[in-house]
Simulated scan of single mutants.
Amino acid sequence: MKILIVHNILWAHYKATVFSELHRLASSYKAEVHVLQIAQSEQSRALLGKPDQLPDQYSYELLFDTYIEQVSTPAKIRALVARMRAYRPDVLLLTGYYDPAQIALMVLAKLSGIKVVIQTESTPVDQVRSGLKEWFKSRVIAMADGFFCFGTPQANYLIQLGVRPDQILVAQNAVVDNAKLRQVYEQARPTRTAKQAEQNLPPANFIYVGRLAAEKNLTALIDAFVQARQKAGNRANWGLLLLGDGPEKGAIQAQIDRLGAQDSVKILPNQPWYRVPQTLALADVLVLPSLSEPWGLVVNEAMACGMPVVVSDRCGCAPDLVKNGQNGYIFDPARPEELTSCLLRFIDGHADRQAMGRVSSEIIAHFSPDTVAREMLAGFVKVTRT
């Protein structure tokens, strides 16, 4: 069985971890796996630096050494069609149904007798939906033989669009490298107090990790944190860390200055993903307050480090990863008072951080690259036998 995977950008390090696991396990399934990476990265990640050079082991080709936005649709179609014809796969995995080039490749694959699997992270609430767009999407996905979904909301959305439940080959394939992240985190923990003092940080901290962008709802997070501190008697032992960069950085810093919260809310320099656990080790609770988030892999990262999480219900990961009141809290971003209440539970000590962290570790153990790779290979086998 020959498996060809089309993936948008080489930058996505956790996908590389899964691809490496697929490569490692493929021989057990009498399969071989090859990945077509369309481009090096995307322009929205330019501030995050160059893609990491990591020792991932899998077979791939980089089609265009540039940002994906700079690759025209005709160029993508020509390159993808040429590589598919040369490789002659039994099954094709596409990582989206929104790209005209991948839709064209899917049509050609179906005409050539090649089975098609689509991987999707879309949910009903991550974007504004229109009737015409949803109709077209349902026509596109009707051509696929099977689907890999980030999680339960994604699987349910596909079923709403007409996909049969038995076509959901993998229902939860959003993973990070749990073991590597936990190792870095544990190595950093012994120096936590010293590092906090060095950076003038409080002994306990909430942390957000990601782009500083409008859809991340960070202005509401800062307001909620300031209000929670005030309700708790303005306790000085809690801070808020914002790790990342992005177009809203200037506005966020202005808000911090306007509120007089410079001592408790700090923007930290962006870090490569493999160093993020070193900063997580300075904090106690991850907060992801997004207005729109197909999944939210940073929640996986924090849980792999044994941390409680506070997550907006607009994040695709919330139903699968957050057990409300057990390893953290889910809140409605349209009701900012809910976020304030969640933060206050930690500040006033009503939430048991240690117990919640243990539950996070237990939940995330089921979301591992090895498990997902095995389920994906079993899915490829299933579609090729139908």
Rank of each mutant, 00 (worst) to 15 (best):
P51V: 05
I38F: 03
A39V: 03
E42I: 10
D56W: 15
L48H: 14
D65C: 06
G49V: 02
I38N: 05
Q43H: 12
F64G: 04
Q57S: 14
A46S: 13
D52K: 11
L63D: 02
Q40R: 15
Q57W: 02
T66N: 07
S44H: 09
Q57A: 13
E69P: 04
E42P: 00
I38D: 05
Q57G: 00
K50R: 12
I38K: 08
Y60T: 04
A39N: 04
L36M: 01
Q53V: 12
V33S: 03
Q53F: 02
E61M: 01
E32N: 09
V35M: 08
I38C: 08
S41L: 02
L48E: 15
Q40S: 11
V33C: 07
S41Q: 07
L47F: 01
P51F: 06
Y67C: 12
V33Q: 04
Q43E: 14
P55M: 05
E69W: 06
S59A: 14
G49Q: 01
L62H: 04
K50D: 12
I38H: 04
A39I: 05
S44Q: 10
S59K: 13
Q70P: 00
E42Q: 15
A31F: 04
D52V: 10
Q70L: 09
Q53N: 09
D52G: 14
Q57M: 10
E69Q: 10
H34F: 11
V33K: 03
Y60C: 11
A39R: 02
A31V: 03
E69I: 07
Y60W: 15
L62R: 04
L63V: 03
L54E: 13
L54Y: 12
T66Q: 11
G49M: 01
P55C: 05
Q70G: 11
R45G: 03
F64H: 08
P51K: 06
I68P: 01
P55K: 06
P55I: 05
I68D: 05
Q57D: 15
P51N: 07
Y58L: 09
H34W: 02
L54H: 09
E61N: 06
Y60A: 10
S41A: 09
L54P: 00
L47G: 14
K50F: 03
L54T: 10
A31Q: 12
P51G: 07
Y67E: 10
P55A: 07
Q37Y: 11
D65V: 00
D65E: 15
Y58H: 15
E32G: 08
Y58F: 15
Q70W: 04
Q40T: 14
A46T: 10
A39K: 02
E69H: 05
D56C: 08
V35G: 08
D52L: 15
I38W: 06
Q57V: 12
I68H: 04
Q40C: 05
R45E: 13
T66S: 10
P55Q: 06
Q40I: 00
L62N: 03
E32K: 11
S44L: 11
A46E: 14
Y67V: 08
F64P: 06
Y58A: 07
A39H: 02
A46F: 10
L36G: 01
L36P: 01
E61F: 01
K50P: 00
T66Y: 01
E69T: 06
L47M: 08
L62D: 02
S44A: 13
Q53E: 14
Q37D: 09
Q57N: 15
E32R: 11
L48R: 14
Q53M: 07
D52Q: 14
L47I: 11
